[in-house]
Design a protein around this nucleic acid. Sequence first.
DNA 1: CCGGCGAAATGGTATATACAACTTAATACA
DNA 2: TGTATTAAGTTGTATATACCATTTCGCCGG
Lengths: 252, 252
Amino acid sequence: MNRHSNSDRNPLAEGGNHALSLGQRIRQYVLSRIDSGEWPEGSRIPSEAKLVDLLGASRMTIHIALRDLSAEGVLLRKQGAGTFVAPRRHQSTFLELRNIHAEIIGRGNLHTTNVLSLESQISDLASATELNVPPGTTVFHAVLVHRENDRPIQIEDRIVNPQFAPEFMKQDYTTTTPNEHLMENGPLEEVEHVIQAVLADASNASLLELEVGDPVLLLRRRTWSRGMIATSARLYHPGMRFSLAGRMKVHR
Amino acid sequence: MNRHSNSDRNPLAEGGNHALSLGQRIRQYVLSRIDSGEWPEGSRIPSEAKLVDLLGASRMTIHIALRDLSAEGVLLRKQGAGTFVAPRRHQSTFLELRNIHAEIIGRGNLHTTNVLSLESQISDLASATELNVPPGTTVFHAVLVHRENDRPIQIEDRIVNPQFAPEFMKQDYTTTTPNEHLMENGPLEEVEHVIQAVLADASNASLLELEVGDPVLLLRRRTWSRGMIATSARLYHPGMRFSLAGRMKVHR
DNA sequence: CCGGCGAAATGGTATATACAACTTAATACA
DNA sequence: TGTATTAAGTTGTATATACCATTTCGCCGG
């Protein structure tokens, strides 16, 4: 069989993926079509046979790639019917919490942000440990209050590894969120969460429009990317009004 | 090639799995060896070639099955070295929280339980909604305090769907946990979590040896099994001393 | 005793083939 | 027009083969 019977132009060559295996390139091909919106949620993607013609790989190779994506929940496959882009599971797991902006917009509400502070600082032992960088390293520090229809719903107290996001300080966080900017700097590889119930201190109470001593949910989240700790955030939520919820399938 | 060159006895036939595909049976074979302890954590399992001889399936079929289990984190595979049983990820995701008994034992501490109440009751609207059963149905209700080295660390306030676990009331929860009993009644299919920060009321404060008004983490957990809501639990943790932590890999 | 080298073992990837199972749409028939 | 049948299209599974990449370990020589 001629592997390039349709065309000598092979679509599997977007952006320096030379080191990837064929299966991985097929995977990236599919994912990029989905991310770009070319293949929207729920739409049917080309059949295995068509992808064979299109990409010049054997059907088994393509089958395995699609099978993996299906196992990960990216695609839905139905024998006899076709392969479809799976609907984005919105609230699957709070560990996969979408950014707060998307959440608020998704509820049809207005999202605004106050930037309380945004500065580079020399890391003390605590913040250095948190980011796993040497003490004395410069780190970025931001404190923001997120509002939904002008009501404060989250304090975001974040330190950022400058090596990961050197442009972090130059962004305008009234129009974009730190999360959005950070996502551009590298793929999210791992997330760590710690959740605690704490009491609002004077500062938090004032910012969240609570009384001192009200219960507050503290979510500490660290994210790994490109092999380093990219950022560590402390997210304070008013515990009475807000909760973190998620549902997930159980395997095994 | 003779698929049964070693023996006519095929190990892939344990307990009514006639309807399963060969790949699924290989999967079950591996999982049951792990669950039974025959292949302990960290141990090396037979190579693909040996499994070919042992199970009579082709290498590709076995490879795919092991590959899937590797993707799910059950196995670890290293090219050139072998396939190993992955260490049980203890704190991977708090959504997969092991039962509290295993956690405490795992820390080398003593776990004791006080049963404060254990009764069947007619469900009111709230509890009926929680379990998705008709109001007026009989449901089981248990309240327990878990202690680690005699220090109270969790209040478990649980309602149970009798249709799921009819023997729930007959268990001795000083020697077993509700969770353990429930696990025997069916496979866990789905879990829903809601986390909130609340203030300890008089009852909670007394049970957890806190002051009234101390912050408490409330974890509400509902589990689905055999197509119904099996149980709904309210788990109270002292928020200052305890937190829920988890780390997970991110896909896509 | 140590180091280097190579063979053997092991998993990783890709392909071609065959058939089974299921879905959908077109077709033929009453 | 409605229904049953058929055909085509699609994914699911299993196999045999080939070659590649990495690891491990024993052997041999210094």
